[in-house]
Simulated assay, not measured.
Amino acid sequence: MSTEPVRRVAAALAAPGQPGSGLAALDVALADSVGHRLFTVLVLDEARGVSRRAYTSQPEAYPVSGEKPLRRDSEFYALVARQGLPRFCRDRGDIIRAFPDHELILSLGCEAAVNMPVRWDGRTLGALNLLHAAGHYTEAQLPALSLFAALAVAPILHILGEEGR
């Protein structure tokens, strides 16, 4: 992976307009380096027991919306939130099993996904969610995804109101 996408994200994070400009730069960098048809950022507020979509590359189909209760019995929560591991959905069947809104996801041409945890100080703050064609995501992309997830810490902390913590 070229260092140019990382440099552009770092520059965007240093500029005014956070967290929007930083998350938009992450969107572009991830599209260029890993690829996606849909990119969202999910923020987890464990203390309040809710999650919310804080960023989306397709606001018409997946708007930034209100809060939803955390589904602590879900595979996403077990892997991504609790264990801090990425979750791969490799094909249409995985998407159908993993997402209650799979019909919308499939209608966008997305038959694969990776949910990459964004972690800070031993806890998961949220996730970078990338969706694309079947078979697009593999473990070989984890180094790049891990780097971009680390760059997402500051914007998510800002969203959670913990920038001074």
Rank of each mutant, 00 (worst) to 15 (best):
S21G: 14
Y62C: 05
L85E: 09
I159P: 01
L44C: 13
N115A: 13
D91V: 15
L70M: 00
V41I: 00
N115S: 12
T138D: 15
P143H: 06
L106K: 09
L30K: 00
E46A: 09
T56H: 02
M116C: 12
V80H: 02
V9K: 00
P16Y: 15
D73W: 15
V153D: 06
Y137T: 02
D45W: 08
F148G: 03
L142E: 06
P19A: 10
T138R: 11
Y137V: 03
L30Y: 04
A152D: 02
R123Q: 09
S65L: 13
V118W: 02
E67W: 09
A154W: 04
A31H: 09
E67S: 11
S33F: 06
L145D: 03
D45K: 09
V34G: 00
T3E: 14
R97L: 09
H36C: 10
R52S: 15
P100M: 04
T124K: 07
I105R: 08
V43F: 03
T138L: 12
D101R: 14
V64R: 11
M116K: 11
R71I: 08
K68I: 13
A47K: 08
S33M: 12
R90L: 15
E111G: 03
G135V: 08
R119M: 03
F39R: 10
D73P: 15
I156N: 01
L151P: 02
G126P: 12
M116S: 06
V6T: 10
S51P: 15
L104K: 11
L160V: 06
L125W: 03
G66F: 15
G49N: 12
V80R: 06
P63Q: 01
G164P: 07
S146L: 11
K68T: 14
I156V: 05
L130K: 10
G164E: 12
I156S: 00
A24P: 05
